[in-house]
Every structure is written in C-alpha cells, then in structure tokens.
Design a protein around this nucleic acid. Sequence first.
DNA 1: CCGACATCTGAACACCGTTAAGATCCGGAC
DNA 2: GTCCGGATCTTAACGGTGTTCAGATGTCGG
Lengths: 217, 217
Amino acid sequence: MSERPYHHGDLAGALLDAAESLVRERGADGWSLREVSSRVGVGPSAAYHHFASRDALVRTLSGRVLARLAEHLRQAAARARHADPRQRLVAVGRGYVRWAVADPAVASLAFGPHHDEPGTPHPRDVLSAELDRLVTAGGLSAAARPGAEVAVWAAVHGLATLLRDGHIRLNGPNAVDREAARLVRAVLTGLAATPHPRPSRTDHRPSGSGSGAGITG
Amino acid sequence: MSERPYHHGDLAGALLDAAESLVRERGADGWSLREVSSRVGVGPSAAYHHFASRDALVRTLSGRVLARLAEHLRQAAARARHADPRQRLVAVGRGYVRWAVADPAVASLAFGPHHDEPGTPHPRDVLSAELDRLVTAGGLSAAARPGAEVAVWAAVHGLATLLRDGHIRLNGPNAVDREAARLVRAVLTGLAATPHPRPSRTDHRPSGSGSGAGITG
DNA sequence: CCGACATCTGAACACCGTTAAGATCCGGAC
DNA sequence: GTCCGGATCTTAACGGTGTTCAGATGTCGG
C-alpha cells in the first residue's frame, strides 16, 4: 500500500499544494483543475469530493496563503528593532510589499475577489494590532485611530498591487523597501497630523448610487 | 444593406463595446470571446481578424477604459472648488475610488496584469500633473516630489482595490468619499512633513532575491 | 465475513480559445 | 461595365476546460 494507495492520505492538502506550485509556475490563472489533479496522480473528478468547485479550491488556497502571510507579518513586527511601534508598522508594511513582489502570482490569487474565509488569520488583523500598539504608545491619538487601519492597509496594499502587476517599476528590491517605508511613515504622520474627517451625524444616506460619479458612458 | 451588412462597419469597436457590457454584467472574467462575438452577431473566429487573441482584446479594452478614467479625473480636478492644488488632488483621489466602486468589474479588468498600451492617457499621468501643480504652488517641497506619485497612487489605488474586491466594506458612498479624502490628505501632509528617504548613492544591488523575505514554504 | 461508507475512476456533456480553408462582399483598375 | 485583389466573415474542426454521474475499489466497524 506504500506505492499508490487507493485512498490518498490527504488529497485535499495535496491538491492545494499542487495548485499553489502551479500558480507559482504559471500565474494565478495559468492552471487547470485537471492539471492539478493529474499532478497529484488522480482523476479530474476526484477533486470534487473535497472541493465543491474549482473556485472553492481557490478560496481555500487563498485562506491558507493569507494566514501564512499574517503569521509572517506578525513575526516581521516582532523582529523590528527598538520595539518602536512606528518601526514595527514600517516593518509590517515592508514585509507585505516584499511578499507581494517576491511571489506575485500567489499574492494575486490570495487577494482575488473572493469573500474571505471566516475564522482564519488575516494580514488586516496584524495591521490593526500594530496600530493599537501605536495608540497606546502615544504615537497616534485615539481620536485618529478609527479607520486608520483602512488608510495604512490601502496604502500598503496599493503599492504591493501596483508593483506586483507591473504598473510601477522600481530599481531593485531596496528601492521597494525604501518606497514602502516612506509610504507607511507618510500615512502615519499624516493621520496623526490631520484632526479628524468629521465623523458626520448619520452616515448611511439612501445608499443608492444617487450622487455617484458614473463615467460609465 | 441596412439590415445586416456583410462587412460590419466597425467590428473591432463593436466587439469592445460588447465585451465591456458583458464585463459589467458578469464580472471581469465571466464572459467568453464566443459570447461577445455572438452578441455582435458574428462568428467566433471573426474577432481574430481584429484582435490577435482574447487577451489582446482585453488589453485594448483596458487601454480604452483607462484613457476614459484619466479624462474623467482630469475633469474632476478642474471642477475642484477654489483651485487649491491640495483640494484638486483630493478630488482626483475621490474620483478614482468612486469610479472603482461604481464599476468594479470594469475597473478590475482595466487594472489587470497587462502591460499598459503605450501612447494612451493614463490616470497616473493626471496624478503626476496635479502633484507638479502642488509643488509649484508651494504645497510640497521639490525635494519631496520625486516618487510622490508612487505614494499617492498606491494609497488611492489600494483603497479602490480593497473596496472593489470587497475586502473592505464602508457604510454608503459618502463614507467612501470621506475615507478617500482622508487618505489623500494624510499622504500629502505626510510626504510634506517627512524630510526625505535618503536617495542612496547607487540603487541597484545584485537584484537577485538575496535579502528577500521568502515566506514561500 | 460482510455490509456500509468514503473514496476514486471513466465516460460523457457543453463550452472554451484558437486555427484553417473557403465563401462573400467591396473598391479600384482597366 | 467588368474583373480582380484584398479585406471580411463563415463553417468546421482541434484540443482542452469545468463539471456531473454511474459505478468500481478500497477501508473499516460489526
């Protein structure tokens, strides 16, 4: 039973591993369920006993990758020198961008338009935790804290995305590091300096696309 | 010849229009070349006399959409009240994010991982132009100008992307506006306040993934 | 030993992007 | 006016895709 057991030990895990390798080799969409299955040594329909569809496999893989990234960022924060909360956030941002650039296809898949798998660690959470730490250390007013995670996540994610998709090119990896650090620092000092964006009494207006821009034509 | 001329007047344009509609209806990838062709009333292979492949059609469509967005942002800047360069940049950022949220599928396609079509207007350029305007108005030091477009583009693009893919949810369109404005303002004041990220003598180190992070395992 | 159950197989379906060979139409040269 | 060349579209086909379904195969508790 050692050569080719009929019951594969962990087909789901093997499929996820193979899919991730294939993504890394051929791009976020340059692979097929059939190829993944055949690489694992199994028929194409076997996968459907573990994943409802190809998309479900992608979602699960995305969750796995995101959890790994979150743990990686947590460690990057912990390794930051001097335990300065600001420096920790810079380290997290740098790690985020580095990761996307180093593994663009996997990053692209991980942040695809899927609803997040609930219950798994997420990079967003480590950003939030580090921002909380910054507030308790006095580096950011509590008044400026709400929504701050949106701002720094957006900044970091935007840089990562634009670099990963080739819309921005920088000379070498340390230029990437430098730009990421500058961006995080800028957002943090900017958030600290700006008073507040007027919370506004009631926030939900009709919610229809009433005052929308609408280029669409 | 009015009913169904054998030579379609502008097949390429019609295909692009149909593809854009289909993208809007079913998502950035929820359509096929065959469906686009059949909607235009033409066989599937007819498209290959105007586009080398489905991907080429996507690239062309992306260029068209990006050019439209650029023009839209230019007008948004021009419409900004008081002609304050800062306010103009806020207006551009807001327009960018609004657009992505209002037309998420098209936005997703437009910013896909294609190389940009050369020679067509690009949103990046209007950001650059507005940043130049900010410098000449004294709102940003010339020393801080280089690379500033990367920072503000990253911030705005990140917010747009995260909102469009559902990774961040906000209550209603004016919450989106407010967050976009806050983000742009934060980045601008942060860039103005930060001295400089040490340009560094030579920038290109071995460029191999030497000091890379490498989560990949 | 046997039956229940999870697991995987093999064949099939409709659809996809892409290519090749041929029919059709248009515009310009004579 | 006629004819021809080239652009334009059609029909048919190829291999590959996600997905489904009936059945074969292994595992395990009774």
